[in-house]
Simulated scan of single mutants.
Amino acid sequence: MTDNQTREIFVTGLRNAHAMENQALSIMKPQIKRIENYPEIAAKLEQHIAETDGQIQRLEDILAGLDEDHSSLKDMALSLTGAMAAMGHSVAGDEILKNSFANYAFENFEIAAYKSLLTVAEAGGYSAATTGLQASLAEERAMAEWLDANIVAVTTKFLSLREAGETAKI
C-alpha cells in the first residue's frame, strides 16, 4: 500500500469519526432533556457530552495537522440519523432501557472505530495523532464500562418505578 493510500484511509477514518462523534451528541443531548427519574444517568451523559466535545476537537486538530478538514456533509447526515434514533426511543414505554442498550452498542462502535484509527495511524507513521486517539479510546471504553456496570441497576429501578405505578419516564 502506498503512503498516499494509507493517508487517504486515515483521513477518511478521521472524518468518519468526527461525524460519528457529532452523531453521538445528537443521541445524548435529547436523552438528557427527557430524563426525570435517573439523575445518575443524566450526570454521566453530561460528563460524556463534555468528553465528546473534546474528542471532536482532538479529531479536528489531527485533521488540521494533516491540512484536512472534517466533512460537514457526513457530520450533518449522521447527526440527523442520531436525532431520529433518539426520537424513536422516546415513544417507547421502556425508553430508558432502549437508550441504555443503544448507548452501550454505540460506545462499542466508537471503541472499534478508534482502535481501527490507531492501527492506521501506526501503519502510516502518524504518531502525532496517537495520543489524542488513545485519549478518545480510553473515554469511550470508560463510558461503555459504566453502561455495562449499570444496566442491572437501571433495569431494576425501571421495574421498581413501574411496579409503584410511576410512569418510569426516563
Rank of each mutant, 00 (worst) to 15 (best):
I41F: 04
K44Q: 14
K44H: 09
E46M: 05
E46P: 01
I49D: 00
A50K: 06
T52M: 02
D53N: 14
Q55A: 12
I56H: 03
I56M: 04
E60M: 11
I62Q: 08
L63E: 06
L63N: 01
A64S: 15
A64K: 14
E68G: 01
K74H: 11
D75C: 10
M76S: 12
M76A: 14
M76K: 13
L78A: 09
S79G: 15
L80Q: 12
T81D: 11
G82V: 05
G82C: 09
A83Y: 12
M84L: 15
A85H: 09
A85E: 13
M87S: 14
H89R: 11
S90F: 07
S90Q: 13
A92P: 00
G93K: 09
G93F: 07
D94R: 09
K98S: 06
N99S: 08
N99L: 10
N99V: 10
A105G: 09
F106L: 13
E107W: 04
E107D: 09
N108Y: 03
F109P: 00
E110M: 04
I111S: 01
I111Y: 02
I111V: 15
A113K: 12
Y114C: 03
Y114Q: 01
S116K: 10
S116P: 00
L117A: 04
L117P: 01
L117N: 03
V120E: 00
V120S: 00
V120W: 03
G125I: 04
T130F: 03
T130W: 02
T130G: 06
T131W: 04
G132W: 02
Q134G: 13
A135P: 00
A135S: 13
A138W: 04
E139A: 14
E140Q: 09
L147N: 03
A149T: 05
N150C: 06
V152H: 08
V152W: 09
A153G: 02
A153H: 07
V154T: 14
T155D: 14
T155A: 15
T156Y: 05
T156K: 12
K157C: 05
F158M: 03
L159K: 11
L161H: 00
L161E: 05
A164F: 02
E166I: 09
E166R: 12
K169Y: 10
